[in-house]
Amino acid sequence: MSYQCGKVISLVLQERFGDLVESIANYLYKYGPCSLLQLKKQMELPLPKVKEVLAVLLKYSLISIKHPNNTDLYALECNRVLWMLRYPTYIKLIKRKFGGDAEVLLEEILQKGYVNETDLLEITLERLTKISVAATLPSLQEKLNSLVIAKYLINFSSQPEIKEDTVKTDEKDKPMEISTPIKAWTINPDRFHQDLRDDFIVSAFANRFDNNAAELIRVLIQQMYVRTEPWAVVSNPVPIVEVKDLIKKMNNFPQLIAHFDQYVAVLEQDNSKFMYKVGEASGGSFQLGMKHIFTVFAWEICEHIVLEKFDSKSGSYISSR
């Protein structure tokens, strides 16, 4: 990765964990996976301090352990460090979908890396009580279960790179044990990113057309998940009749219901080519180009920048790429 990326990673870790954690993480960024003894020697730090820093980084899933030739090597997970910048967005998303109680639950997990379920519920209840928000342990347990069912939270022990492990040292040193509490939860970044991606697509079509078109796209993506892996490049076919029936049942967009076929035709003909028809039976089905749409967005942003900086002719040249 680039020098600038390294600077961002250093700043994020320094602000959150302090100079010592930042210095060891920065070394791992520059030189790649290292053993415990390598870090001790190169950083000129006491072994207990190095162990303490590795324990912190493991707790927050910011490093992983590799085992070449039966040697434990510690590797910095750069993306996970950068994802910490998205934590406020994660919190807003959960508040919007699940309410204030779930927001506080998530804040506690993000603050601590992972939290024992019992402790999490008690701490959250205490925080809510202090700000005079009515909540009970059963209601918080229900919110927590909802976050787990929706896969925003996952069992800590289910992550192989964060599993209970032992750092091997020489015979004079005791091994460092990273214990995992029973029934502890941590966040599942992939699930948050899936929602952020979908929100971005829906918002883009709202700006491109209107809220009715955006709702049609939203329901199409929702139904895509019934039959397609979330990060597939192209979705499996989604029957348009199924989408129409769902929109009718919701009955929140009367204009979309009244002009459904016209909206489908306009979106199908749009130069983004996000949705395209396959088959003719029962009105046909549509596939969604989940990867292609971001290529289109990227080009449109480039065109907009060039157009602002130069003139319409330069924008036309870019469009004819």
Rank of each mutant, 00 (worst) to 15 (best):
Q42C: 02
V12W: 03
I123F: 01
K66N: 15
N69F: 11
H304R: 12
T71Y: 10
F156Q: 14
I94V: 10
A184C: 02
V133M: 07
W299M: 07
E122W: 06
T124A: 07
E15M: 09
G284P: 03
N252M: 15
K249N: 04
K313R: 15
E122M: 09
F156L: 13
F260A: 06
D198F: 13
C302N: 14
L76D: 02
E103V: 08
V296P: 06
I149F: 10
A298Q: 10
E242H: 07
S146G: 05
L39R: 02
G18S: 11
E126D: 08
Y27V: 05
L37F: 08
L256I: 11
E142D: 14
E52P: 03
L45F: 03
V167E: 13
I9V: 07
I65W: 05
K183H: 15
A281Q: 13
G283S: 04
I154M: 15
H67K: 14
L110H: 12
L267I: 02
E177K: 15
R197F: 11
D170A: 14
Q42H: 09
A298R: 12
F192Q: 05
D245T: 15
I221V: 08
D72K: 14
Y317E: 12
L246K: 12
H292C: 07
A214T: 00
G289T: 00
K95N: 11
Q255I: 08
S285H: 00
V219P: 00
V306D: 09
Y3A: 13
L110V: 11
D72Y: 13
S23A: 03
H292E: 14
V115N: 01
P175S: 09
E280S: 10
S10V: 01
T136E: 15
L58Y: 07
V226E: 13
K249Q: 09
A134F: 09
G284A: 03
R86I: 11
K249I: 09
L256Q: 06
D261W: 06
L140G: 04
R127M: 06
N251E: 07
H292V: 12
L76E: 01
R227N: 08
D195C: 08
S64N: 03
S146C: 04
P48N: 05
T166L: 14
Y29S: 11
R191S: 12
L256V: 10
K51V: 12
K40N: 12
S35D: 02
